[in-house]
Simulated assay, not measured.
Amino acid sequence: MAVSMTGFGRSKTESGSFTVHVEIKTVNHRFCEYHIRMPRQLLKVEEKIKKILGAYIRRGRVEVFITVEGEGAVSRQLRVEWDLIEEYYQFIKKAQLKYGIEGTITLQELINREDLIHIEETEGSDDELENAVLAAAEDAACHLTKMRQDEGIELVKDITSHLHQLEAFVNSLRKHAPSVVQQYKERLTRRMQEFLNGQADEARILTEVAVFSEKADINEELIRLNSHIQQFFNILIENNPIGRKLDFLVQEMNREANTIGSKANDSIIARDVVEIKSLLEKMKEQIQNIE
């Protein structure tokens, strides 16, 4: 089954003290590459998250965004630098006595100084939070996979349509190819008659036609091209990742089309080769999205 490499999945898990949000986005890539952004206290479960995603994603660039909201994510406590406050207070008193400065130290002045009194945030980490993150990651991966599968179905429909058109061109070329040799023989005969006053050397004509026929023979290329098309149909229904196989087949089919174009000295065949190469280019673009 063809699966697209592009997709998006989102999930949310709520608890009494926190809420976990997980978003997963995938795009095209030659290999499977993970980029996970999450709070520092969850770094130890990164490998577990990758293992979960690996069961759903075989290829593509995977971007994961994890956020945690609520009191369960961060614990806060008041940090008071008592020793520093004491030094600060003693300095003020000493300065007042030494220089005769009048004034009082208020509590508000101390509170406003962040170097003396501030709030420390500590990222918490517990099994409940980690389990919630893993559950949300798997749920988001399921939604992502559903979207990738749905898009894969549409890609297969489009590629299948192109394959049927390719089959039609191959069949048309197979029917038209024999007439190319016959037309060459007729042109050669007319030219020889023109130069030889209505007489032609039949043996020479047959020799030239035989040489031309061998050079212009595209039957092998058509057989291979048709074989590749049938392989394409078979691969499209496989359950394993198929993107690389299809990409290789398109390259082989393009090679056969180039050979046909270089061999055939015929305007109709040249026109059909252009159409075939256009279809292959469209297929190649779609295959770049398949896992």
Rank of each mutant, 00 (worst) to 15 (best):
A2S: 10
M5A: 02
M5W: 00
S11C: 02
S11P: 00
T13D: 12
G16C: 08
I24R: 08
I24P: 04
N28S: 00
V45E: 00
K48E: 06
K50A: 04
K50G: 08
G54M: 07
A55W: 09
Y56H: 14
I57L: 13
F65Q: 12
T67F: 05
E71V: 12
R76D: 03
Q77F: 14
L78H: 10
D83T: 13
Y88K: 12
Y88M: 11
Y88C: 14
I92A: 13
K93M: 13
G100V: 08
G100P: 06
I101S: 05
T106G: 10
Q108L: 14
L110P: 10
I111F: 11
N112S: 15
E114F: 11
I117N: 01
I119V: 15
E120P: 10
E120V: 14
D126I: 00
D150W: 04
L166F: 07
A168R: 15
L173A: 11
H176K: 03
V181H: 04
Q183S: 12
Q183N: 14
K185I: 00
R187K: 05
L188F: 07
T189G: 02
R190G: 08
L206N: 13
T207A: 14
V209I: 01
S213H: 05
S213F: 03
E214F: 04
F232Y: 13
N234V: 11
N234C: 13
I235K: 10
L236G: 10
I237L: 11
N240P: 07
I242Y: 09
R244P: 09
E252C: 08
E256T: 06
K263W: 02
K263M: 01
K263S: 02
E281H: 11
